[in-house]
Write a protein that binds this DNA or RNA. Sequence first.
DNA 1: AAGGAAGCCAACCGCCAATTG
DNA 2: CCAATTGGCGGTTGGCTTCCT
Length: 323
Amino acid sequence: MVHRCCSKQKIKRGLWSPEEDDKLLKYVTTHGHKSWSSVPKFAGLQRCGKSCRLRWINYLRPDLKRGSFTDEEEQIIIDVHRILGNRWAQIAKHLPGRTDNEVKNFWNSCIKKKLISQGLDPQTHNLLSSHRRSSTCTTISTTNQYSNSIFFMSSQIPNSPMQTRQTLSSLPKAQTNTFQTPPTIIPSQSQTPNILPYELSDLPCEPSFENPSNICSSSYMNPSKVRFSNNENNNIWVSSIDAEDLRVQPLEEEGLESQVQVEKDKTYEKGIDHEIKEAGKGNLETNGYLESSNFDFGLLESLLSSDLMFHDLNYMDELAWNF
DNA sequence: AAGGAAGCCAACCGCCAATTG
DNA sequence: CCAATTGGCGGTTGGCTTCCT
């Protein structure tokens, strides 16, 4: 079926010729593309506007990066996909110069197979059932072998004396690591009214989120640290916990809070927050991981795009932190 | 060397949401 | 407010290339 915008004109289809590319490139670089539907007419192309747009975005745009994906880009795709699922446009935003189509093709042709060969479900990033049979769900070492990230959420009110057991969930990782001995994290009483004690050995294999007013992430890529974040009525604070001394270290709550808020505001300006939330919804529906939760993908995205994560630490570590 | 299979990727399709008149 | 149009996105297809037998 021909798209509505194409129905009124005689349109050419299929691969673009160098001459067509030249026409489109010249027109868009000199006149821009206020309305894609009028581009083919003014550029002298027998194509529909949609086709012109696609050709520009996927091939002619001057800021496109050429060549094969780097290992770093591949890891970013895997990490972001773990959270967003098949939101290729969103994933591509984290890879400057790459298009959603490119990311999608790379995923389908390479990454998917790689994950499957590692015994991971490319959609859920969980162990495939055939691989799960031979593994034990109750030991951290088994979970570690395939995971570098954990998430948990709780309903705990900050400063509340009430403490309930955390439910941890693991999100598998497409690479192995050498972290073997999980620390038991017992926050010091004076500093940790918001953080509940839990043991990593309590990690279940199946992800489960309960009352997600708090979000916590940890990374086995960087097992010495655990980062906690909390979002209460738009007052966001982020703190990190050093698992080696097992004490929570609030990270300059005031300053960081405002910094995060600034980043969040920026994100709102771009409308990304909403997009990520929407993306999150879709992913939840698809994967069934976070059903009935209100996981804050806005916060997630603002942290993702925040200078916070790019300045101090290795990018991949930070992705793991914030996911 | 030839032919079939598999892989890759550009482009299309169809749906949806936003915009416009 | 509503219908038409447009832009954007994810899924899919088909043709070209590479690999294997």
